[in-house]
Design a protein around this nucleic acid. Structure first.
Length: 432
DNA sequence: TCTGGGGTCCTAGGACCC
DNA sequence: TCTGGGGTCCTAGGACCC
């Protein structure tokens, strides 16, 4: 058995912990650059704000309906996530942290009433972090996901499912009739692994509810779609195909990409941006003890704007795999030089580290006199240590531009709340 | 004016091999 | 008239996830 613990409207819930005045009001959190809605309170959902809705299209709701929009504050969400995950792990014996607000728990060998136990953990998370959760339980991860959807929907939309399934839902203990009525009440697009494309195709073939999907012939699913859909159906039928991944393997790619606050045409700001992105990606790379073999750089115009379009990338091979910020940033800028053209209003750039491998692998090579210099590795460790101790940006490459000055390409974040839990200067003060 | 960022997996098709 | 068969590896692109 698996459980899925998932924070409700997670980013909004994090904000509400420190802004109780936002409770019961329509609130959304915006993506970087204050671009579009990436989290919505129930009240905002009820207003009809869609996931991913561009802010400029819904901005009128600010005055019309009291909609509150906040800039994304990932420093806060990451810390709140750590706290929630720690408490959630007590639900079972193994935990896979699947995303910032979700974790799967292995319930194998957990004795007693799983629903009562889950309610207890749910209350503990709410009490100690302020984050409300939904917990779904099922024989497979896909069923646990589905149960979680039921638990959250039953709470948010009374009448959608039986009331007692709200907050915690165990599909594993339902009788056939109850289970079928839940499956019939749920549309295929709610299933984990079935996206908009496949659900549309399934609907056209008359498969509309999860009950229809569960009864589908797995061979036909494989022929018509892929092994992925076959696996999803088998999981829905109760055959585990996806195990708990509680020791995630290192990333195979590490990216840092950003849209700019406003369009950029000149080379210098692009060089700064690409240097900055390469530096940030390199930090992540060293954190997982990897080296990169290739670095990909791209720049592009906005596909949403009616301007001459431009989109190019360069793949730069590294002489030898490295995690050295200066080498990676230099390679990225070389790539940028190769693809840069003036006279375009560029809106986004990014760097992707590829062909990653462990930093423990020693590649035998001929010595051409420029072999890996241990002092460079120590320099990187020193940089990481300084930035960790004194905050990001304490030391950085000069070619990333002066961080003390507003950089032409920096992103827009006009509505960001403080880092309440991670910066001394931002910690709330309680007055007697 | 204004539309996110960071990943994974699967498949088809081409290059290449004998 | 008529142009093999079987395999691997790599890559680009699609679909999906949050």
């Amino acid at each position: 058995m698996y459980a899925l613990v998932d924070g409700n409207n997670f980013y909004v819930s994090c904000e509400r912990v420190f802004r109780p005045d936002l409770k019961h009001r329509p609130v959304i959190v915006l993506s970087n650059n204050d671009g579009c809605a990436i989290a919505r309170s129930n009240e905002a959902k009820a207003l009809g704000v869609a996931m991913g809705a561009p802010w400029f299209q819904i901005k009128h709701l600010e005055k019309q309906a009291g909609l509150v929009a906040l800039s994304a504050n990932f420093e806060l969400y990451g810390d709140m996530s750590d706290r929630m995950m720690r408490i959630a792990s007590a639900l079972g014996h193994g935990q896979e942290i699947y995303s910032i607000d979700e974790s799967f728990i292995d319930l194998t060998g957990v004795p007693g009433d799983l629903v009562a136990h889950s309610h207890k953990i749910r209350s503990r998370i709410l009490q100690r972090t302020g984050i409300p959760c939904g917990i779904g339980i099922g024989a497979t991860k896909t069923l646990a996901k589905l149960a979680n959807h039921v638990a959250k929907t039953a709470e948010r939309k009374p009448g959608s499912y039986p009331e007692q399934l709200a907050q915690v839902c165990n599909l594993g203990t339902m009788n056939q009739t109850e289970l079928e009525s839940v499956l019939r009440a749920t549309e295929v697009q709610e299933v984990w692994g079935v996206g908009p494309r496949i659900s549309k195709q399934l609907n056209e073939g008359g498969i509309k509810t999860v009950l229809d999907l569960i009864q589908m012939d797995v061979a036909a699913a494989r022929r018509g779609w892929s092994v992925g859909l076959e696996r999803t159906i088998r999981e829905l039928q109760g055959t585990p195909c996806i195990g708990l991944d509680d020791a995630p393997s290192p990333k195979q790619e590490i990216a840092c990409t950003r849209s700019f606050g406003k369009p950029v045409s000149d080379f210098d700001p692009l060089r700064e941006a690409v240097t900055e992105f390469a530096s940030r990606a390199a930090i992540k790379l060293r954190k997982q003890c990897s080296l990169a073999g290739h670095i990909k750089v791209f720049i592009r115009t906005s596909p949403f704007r009616d301007v001459p379009q431009f989109s190019r990338f360069a793949m730069v091979p590294l002489l030898r795999p490295t995690a050295d910020t200066t080498v990676l940033a230099h390679a990225a800028v070389m790539g940028l030089k190769a693809i840069y053209r003036s006279n375009f209003k560029l809106s986004k750039a990014g760097v992707i580290l590829m062909d990653l491998q462990s930093d423990q692998v020693k590649q035998g090579e001929l010595d051409f006199g420029d072999a890996v210099d241990g002092s460079r590795v120590r320099l990187m460790s020193a940089m990481d240590a300084l930035n960790h101790r004194f905050g990001r940006g304490a030391v950085y490459l000069a070619s990333a531009g002066n961080k003390g000055i507003k950089r032409a390409w920096s992103m827009k974040q006009e509505r960001r709340t403080p880092a309440y839990t991670t910066r001394l200067s931002d910690i709330p003060v309680v007055r007697a």
